[in-house]
Every structure is written in C-alpha cells, then in structure tokens.
C-alpha cells in the first residue's frame, strides 16, 4: 500500500489517545471528590456518546433502519447476548430493506 504511513500513524495516535483515557483514570480522581452535578454529567457521558453515534443511522437514514433499530433495542432490553442482538439487528435490516 502506498499510503501505509498515514494509516499507521493514525492507528498509533488512536492507541495513544486511548491509552491516555485508560491510564488517566489512575491519576484523574486522586484527591478529587467527584460528586453531585459533575458526577451526574460524567455518568451520562457514555450513553450520550453512544446515542449520538447511532442517531443519524437510526433517525435520518430511512424507515428500514429506524424500525430495525427499535427491534434491536427490544432485543438489547431483553438482555440477549451482544452477538444475538447484533444478529437480530442485521437480519432485521436486511429483511426490511427488501420489503420497504
């Protein structure tokens, strides 16, 4: 591949950014009492980011994706294993794209 360098550089920078998030936790909260409004905001960060990730696909792509997302969410709420949830989602979207 001719553009190996940008790819590998991006991968390693991703790794560095990710390690920062991992090791940062060891030092971040030392002496800081995370509570109240700050804790509520930090607790909401993962679900908020996950929702933001899927929102365009779920809301603005088409009816097949929106309905498939609702069915996938039902499977997830039933606490099915992750691989089963993904299989249901993929199977549903393929079927719905064929009929809708």
């Amino acid at each position: 591949m001719s553009d190996d360098l940008p790819t590998v550089a991006t991968i390693l920078a991703m790794a560095a950014a990710t390690y920062l998030t991992r090791v940062g936790g060891l030092y971040l909260m030392r002496g800081v009492n995370v509570k109240g409004r700050l804790k509520a905001a930090l607790d909401a960060l993962p679900p908020a980011v996950l929702m933001a990730l899927i929102a365009p696909t779920v809301l603005t792509t088409g009816p097949a994706e929106t309905v498939a997302a609702a069915i996938t969410a039902s499977a997830a709420i039933l606490r099915l294993p992750m691989i089963a949830v993904v299989a249901i989602g993929v199977g549903t979207v393929v079927a719905l794209r064929a009929v809708l």
């Binding site: 996950l50 696909t57 779920v58 996938t72 997830a76 709420i77 993904v86 993929v90 393929v94």
Partner: peptide, 15 residues
C-alpha cells in the same frame, strides 16, 4: 446488512 452491525452493537452496549 453488516453496515448496520455498527448501530446494532452500540444499541446492545447502550442498553
């Protein structure tokens, strides 16, 4: 439909 696997996995984690 593998493209939708992204969204399905995030929905599973989100729950």
């Amino acid at each position: 439909g593998f493209d939708f696997a992204f969204s399905a996995m995030f929905i599973a984690i989100l729950a």
